[in-house]
Amino acid sequence: MASLSLMHWLLMGNMGLLLLVGAFMWSLKRQQNQDANRLDQAVGSLQQAHQAMSKSTIGMGRKLKQIDGRLQHAERKVVLPTTDEATFQQASRLVGLGATASDLVDSCGVARGEAELIVSLKRQTAH
């Protein structure tokens, strides 16, 4: 067998190196494809989650709008007591707790005659 010349050794070395670089490049390309597939799956999952959240948010918005409409409708129906009614209710509660006519004049600002009338009516209903 004839001995190989330096040129042959260099060509075989270069061929081996080329095969090694080719295998490395193929491995990198394969890894890149796998990463791309995983990213595609992750993006798909995120898109589905986003769509579900969007639908849920829209549904919640509609429900809140319904509740707000009902609340506004109910608020229109509520009749707040007039200032005199509120004062009478407060005075009546105070008398129930044991307040006197003077206490009502001082705390509620009602006239002395009204305070005495409230006290006497409350006492009569208590008996």
Rank of each mutant, 00 (worst) to 15 (best):
M60V: 13
G61M: 07
Q34F: 04
S5A: 15
W9D: 13
Q47N: 02
L20F: 12
K65W: 12
E85F: 05
A86D: 05
K63A: 02
E75W: 14
N14L: 14
G59S: 13
M15A: 12
P81V: 01
Q34H: 05
G44I: 00
R30V: 14
D35T: 05
L80A: 07
D68L: 13
M53R: 08
Q90R: 11
Q47A: 00
L19T: 08
D84H: 07
T83R: 07
Q47P: 00
V78L: 07
S27K: 15
M12V: 09
A74L: 15
G13N: 15
F24D: 15
D40Q: 14
L104Q: 00
G61L: 07
A36M: 01
L28N: 10
F88I: 14
M53L: 09
A91D: 00
L18S: 06
V110T: 02
G113W: 09
H50A: 11
A2H: 11
G113A: 09
L19I: 05
H127M: 13
S102L: 10
I58Y: 07
V78P: 01
L121H: 15
L94Q: 09
V119L: 08
P81D: 03
Q34D: 06
M7Y: 09
R112W: 10
Q89P: 00
V105T: 04
S54I: 00
M15G: 14
H50N: 15
E116K: 13
A36G: 04
L11C: 09
A86W: 04
K63P: 00
K65R: 11
A74G: 10
M1Y: 09
L19P: 02
V95L: 04
N14A: 12
L10W: 12
M25K: 10
T87G: 04
Q41P: 09
